[in-house]
């Protein structure tokens, strides 16, 4: 018999009312103070990340909750005062969500090779039994994207662009948009690690 470990507690969906616990303001809970976990502050270039999650019928997932985890501007995790983590809820009318954060620095892959600058994203929602891991990359980092070890591990090269955001024009700060497709022809790449 192989060695037995404790079994991880199984996942269950966050459900439609996930905001009560994780974004009380969005649920309409007036607890007195405001919370803006979609705004990350720290040294570096300020950027905005926005997007929408689309279901298999092409409709926005309007109760999605997205979490972000990223390195600081120098490519470090858990360094200094930069929390590196954020949480955003989709707008109930449109499904649109956004973060304001700083542009992450380059982080090393396991073997020391540089990874292209990116943020990690988690998707929670009603109908999603276990959260989905994905990444957002920046379109102007062309050479780094070409060499990125994680993007290269996606066998079908045609699926890699699903992780590369679009830079929007004419915005006050650099703004990137990522449409996350849960299912279908242009399905976003989701990771298991």
């Amino acid at each position: 018999m192989p060695v037995e470990y404790l079994k991880e507690t199984p996942s269950q969906t966050g459900g439609p009312y996930v905001h009560i616990g994780l974004l009380p303001v969005a649920a309409g809970l007036a607890y007195g103070t405001q919370e803006h976990p979609h705004i990350l502050t720290g040294p570096g270039e300020r950027i905005r990340i926005e997007g929408v999650v689309i279901d298999g019928s092409g409709h926005p997932v309007r109760d999605a909750l997205v979490e972000l985890w990223q390195a600081d501007s120098e490519g470090r995790h858990n360094a200094g005062d930069f929390l590196g983590w954020g949480r955003a809820g989709a707008a109930f009318e449109t499904g649109e969500w956004f973060f304001e954060t700083i542009r992450p620095g380059v982080t090393p892959w396991r073997d020391g090779r540089p990874q292209a600058r990116h943020v990690s994203l988690l998707i929670f929602a009603r109908g999603i039994n276990i959260h989905l891991h994905t990444r957002l990359y920046f379109p102007e980092d062309e050479a780094a994207l070409e060499a990125d070890p994680v993007l290269r591990s996606i066998e079908q090269a045609g699926r890699r662009p699903t992780l590369i955001a679009t830079r929007l024009e004419g915005t006050p700060i650099p703004t990137y948009r990522l449409v996350i497709r849960l299912q279908g022809d242009e399905e976003t790449v989701f990771f298991d690690m």
Partner: peptide, 20 residues
Amino acid sequence: TSVLRSPRRALVSLEPGPGE
């Protein structure tokens, strides 16, 4: 609700890096 909110393609298996 899981019918339209579940990926049809396999997850891409990844070794954990510093961000994971």
